[in-house]
Design a protein around this nucleic acid. Structure first.
Lengths: 193, 193
DNA sequence: TTGCTACTGTACCGTTTGGTAAACAGTGTG
DNA sequence: CACACTGTTTACCAAACGGTACAGTAGCAA
C-alpha cells in the first residue's frame, strides 16, 4: 500500500464534518474510518484517546478558527463597526449561509456537553465577550453591549437550528442580516444621546 | 410480580426526558429500560417499532401539546396580543425557564432529522404560521408578521442553545422577555402609521 | 545497509447494541 | 371456570460497538 503520510491535522476537517452530520454518539468508528479513509490503526495512532480525543481535536480547531478569524479581530479592531460587519461575513461563510450546523451548539444540547464542557463554554463565552468588547469600543454602554452580544449569538444559533429544521437556509441569512443591522445601529443610538 | 398495568402514554414523558438528555443516538435501550422501569419486552409491546417508534411517539406528544397549548390559542384568540403574551408564558414554563432543551430543535441538528423530517418540519412550520396569524390579527402586515414570527422562534431556539451551553438559564429568560416586548411592540408601530 | 520512526492494515478482543421469542401472570368477560 | 387479552419477565441472538495488538511497510538519517 502507498504511504500517504497523512498528518493529524489533515483528518480534522473530515472528522468535523462527520460529527456535524451524525452527532457525537451517532458517529461510529466504522463511519469514521470509512469517511476519513483512515484505518483504525491510523486513527488510534493520531488519537490514542479514541472518539473523545477526535471530537476534542475538532472542537479545538473550531475554537482556533474563531479565535483568529472572529474573536481577535473584534477585540483589536481600529474600527469596531467594520469589524462587526466582517464578523457577520465570516460567520455567514463559515456556516455556509445556513447549510452547515454549529457543532459546538449541537454538542451543547445533550449530555455530550458535559464531556466537553470547558470547550463548549469557552467558545460561547469568548464570543460573547469579544463581541461585547467591540460594541463597547463602538460606544455602546457595557451593560447594553453584553446584552446585545448575547442576543446576537443566540439569534445566530437559533437561525441555524430553524434553518436546518425547515430546510430553508434563507432563514439563517435573514437572521444574520437582522442581527447585523441591529449591531450597527446600537452604538449609533448611544452616540445620539 | 405485581402487575403495574402501565399504559403506553405513561412512559412517553420519561422517554421524552431520556431523549432530551442523551439525544436519539445516545439513548440506548438499556438506558431506556433502566429509566422507564420497563423491560425490553414491555417496551416492544408498546412500541413494536423500537426506538424509532418511541421517539416518534414523543415527538407526537410534544406536537400535540404545542398545538393545543400554543398554536391553537394563537390562531383563534379574540385578543391576539394577550394570546402572544400567553404563548411566552407557556413557552417559558415548558422549557423550564431555559433549563430544559427543545427536543425537536436538537433532533433537527444532525442526521436524525431525516428520520423524523415531517414531524420536525411541521412543528416549526406550524409554530411560525400560528404566530404570524396572531400578529396579523393584531394588525401587523403579513410580510412583517411572518418575518417577526420567524425571528421569534429562532431567538427562542438560540436562547435555549446558548443558555445550556453556558449553563446560564437566565439567558433564555432574557431572550424570552426581549422577544415578547418586540412582539407586543410590532403591531403597535403599524397601528401608528 | 542498517536501523529507527511514523504510519497503516488486519485480525481480534470483550461488551453492548437493537431486536426477538416464548413462557408466564394478572384482569375482565362470558 | 374458561378464555382471551394485556402486560411482564427472562433468555437469547447476530451484528455492531469502541478499542487493542501487532506485524508490516514506507521514508529517511546515519
Amino acid at each position: 500500500m502507498s504511504k500517504i503520510v497523512s498528518e493529524r491535522s489533515d483528518v480534522i476537517p473530515s472528522l468535523a464534518e462527520i460529527f456535524r452530520e451524525h452527532g457525537f454518539e451517532g458517529a461510529s468508528l466504522s463511519t469514521i474510518t470509512e469517511k476519513t479513509g483512515l484505518g483504525k490503526g491510523s486513527l488510534y495512532h493520531f488519537f490514542p484517546g479514541g472518539k473523545e480525543e477526535m471530537a476534542a481535536a475538532v472542537l479545538s480547531e473550531i475554537d482556533g478558527w474563531f479565535v483568529t478569524q472572529v474573536f481577535a479581530p473584534l477585540r483589536s479592531a481600529d474600527d469596531p463597526r467594520s469589524a462587526i460587519a466582517r464578523m457577520c461575513r465570516s460567520v455567514s461563510e463559515y456556516f455556509r449561509s445556513g447549510r452547515r450546523v454549529c457543532l459546538v451548539g449541537a454538542f451543547a444540547l445533550d449530555n455530550v456537553r458535559d464531556r466537553f464542557i470547558d470547550q463548549v463554554r469557552d467558545y460561547f463565552a469568548e464570543w460573547r465577550c469579544a463581541l461585547a468588547e467591540a460594541l463597547e469600543n463602538a460606544g455602546c454602554p457595557q451593560q447594553d453591549a453584553v446584552a446585545l452580544a448575547e442576543e446576537t449569538i443566540a439569534a445566530i444559533q437559533g437561525g441555524l437550528v430553524l434553518a436546518r429544521a425547515l430546510d430553508e437556509p434563507g432563514i439563517f441569512e435573514r437572521t444574520l442580516e437582522r442581527v447585523q443591522s441591529r449591531l450597527l445601529a446600537a452604538p449609533h443610538e448611544e452616540d445620539q444621546r
